[in-house]
Amino acid sequence: MLTFVLRRCALLVVVLFGVSLLTFAVAHLAPGDPARLIAGPQASAEAVAHVRRDLGLDAPLWRQYALYAGRLARLDLGQSNVSGKPVLREIAARAPASLELMGSGLILALALGTPLGVWAALKRGGLADRGVGALAVAGAAMPAFWLGLMLILLFYRELAWFPASGRFTGAPPPAVTGLMTLDALLAGDPRAFETACAHLALPTLSIALLDLGLVARLVRNQMLGVLDAEYIRTARATGLPEGRVIVDHALRNALSPMITVVAASLATMLYGSVSVETVFGWPGAGQYVVESIFSMDFPVIMGFAVVTSAVYVVVNLLADLLYAAVDPRVRARGV
């Protein structure tokens, strides 16, 4: 197990090194001059040169990268060119909103996708099975921003069931965790909880629908492998009700690979939330980086890319370790 952990940690370092190289290269290949942006359009050439020198942009590329990598090693993502505040602090301040959205979307996708996958497996080759397959393809192909706009048109404009944007209306509950729904519960304010849930509903549904088909398809494939196992036939032969056979025996054993599914879904939502937050005006890290792209705030863009890539890699590392803990065959292979 120790060898497995060390190998995964070494891969983590290699991946993060590659991410730092890629973000550094993209920032320097992108059009625009951050020194000119900070100095202002009316600044003289001398003022722009002074800003460029202060930022270290006049140094050779290898030295700029060495300084950049050194700051990353100290968890220093630099300062925003627009606000002048540390990028890590700016992202961390908006992270609870993104985490609340992604967590709600993941729970909804699993809650709906798991029974759909079981149903498709039990109706293998039938209409339900083909419908789940079509749902998986549609979820993979559907743009997140388009889906969000359609939900707004239906549930806000036509039905007026939910608000179209924002995270809360009125005075929010006292911030304890940063998660609006949980803070409302901690404050004992049911009206605030209802308001927070209403604002969360459409963005959560948009996030969940993107991964719903994928979760259902993967559960279906795992169930198909389990339903043909010898112990399932034995359980049925003993006269157990079909519901107990499916839930207690088939589904329980089919869900162990879902650890990887959850990790993959979190990664998908991490990037998909950028579009969803922008469409719904959700004040999370995704909307923040979109605003930074329009203002050419390169430290924020690079910092967001590093943070999301690190989260993606760490989540998959934890999923691998957890999967190895529950399945000795993975530890034995050491892959």
Rank of each mutant, 00 (worst) to 15 (best):
residue 247 V to C: 10
residue 42 Q to F: 09
residue 177 T to F: 02
residue 54 D to E: 15
residue 107 I to K: 09
residue 164 A to K: 01
residue 289 V to M: 02
residue 115 P to K: 07
residue 155 F to W: 03
residue 10 A to M: 09
residue 127 L to Y: 07
residue 102 M to V: 08
residue 144 A to I: 00
residue 88 L to T: 11
residue 282 W to Y: 15
residue 184 A to T: 04
residue 162 F to H: 11
residue 25 A to N: 00
residue 184 A to Y: 10
residue 250 A to Y: 03
residue 194 E to D: 14
residue 327 D to V: 06
residue 297 D to S: 12
residue 292 S to W: 03
residue 202 L to C: 05
residue 176 V to A: 05
residue 331 R to T: 13
residue 104 S to L: 11
residue 33 D to M: 04
residue 310 A to Y: 04
residue 195 T to W: 05
residue 250 A to T: 06
residue 193 F to T: 11
residue 103 G to Y: 06
residue 134 A to N: 08
residue 77 L to V: 01
residue 318 L to E: 00
residue 210 L to M: 15
residue 170 G to A: 04
residue 86 P to I: 14
residue 278 T to C: 03
residue 314 V to F: 15
residue 226 V to W: 05
residue 335 V to P: 01
residue 313 V to D: 15
residue 158 E to F: 00
residue 327 D to E: 12
residue 90 E to N: 01
residue 281 G to M: 00
residue 30 A to W: 08
residue 59 A to E: 08
residue 303 G to Y: 04
residue 139 G to A: 05
residue 120 A to Q: 04
residue 129 D to R: 08
residue 39 A to P: 01
residue 33 D to F: 01
residue 72 L to M: 00
residue 102 M to G: 09
residue 236 R to T: 03
residue 269 M to Q: 15
residue 209 L to T: 08
residue 11 L to V: 13
residue 149 L to I: 11
residue 221 N to T: 14
residue 335 V to S: 11
residue 110 L to C: 00
residue 65 Y to T: 08
residue 169 T to E: 13
residue 75 L to Q: 00
residue 312 Y to P: 04
residue 184 A to D: 13
residue 43 A to N: 09
residue 97 A to G: 07
residue 153 L to D: 10
residue 202 L to K: 08
residue 123 K to N: 09
residue 39 A to L: 00
residue 305 A to K: 00
residue 84 G to H: 12
residue 101 L to E: 03
residue 220 R to W: 05
residue 90 E to H: 00
residue 197 C to R: 12
residue 260 T to I: 09
residue 198 A to E: 15
residue 67 L to M: 13
residue 143 P to W: 09
residue 73 A to V: 11
residue 203 P to A: 08
residue 177 T to I: 02
residue 240 L to C: 05
residue 155 F to K: 00
residue 58 D to I: 03
residue 186 L to C: 02
residue 79 Q to I: 00
residue 50 H to Y: 09
residue 191 R to A: 14
residue 199 H to P: 03
residue 137 V to Q: 10
residue 227 L to G: 06
residue 43 A to H: 11
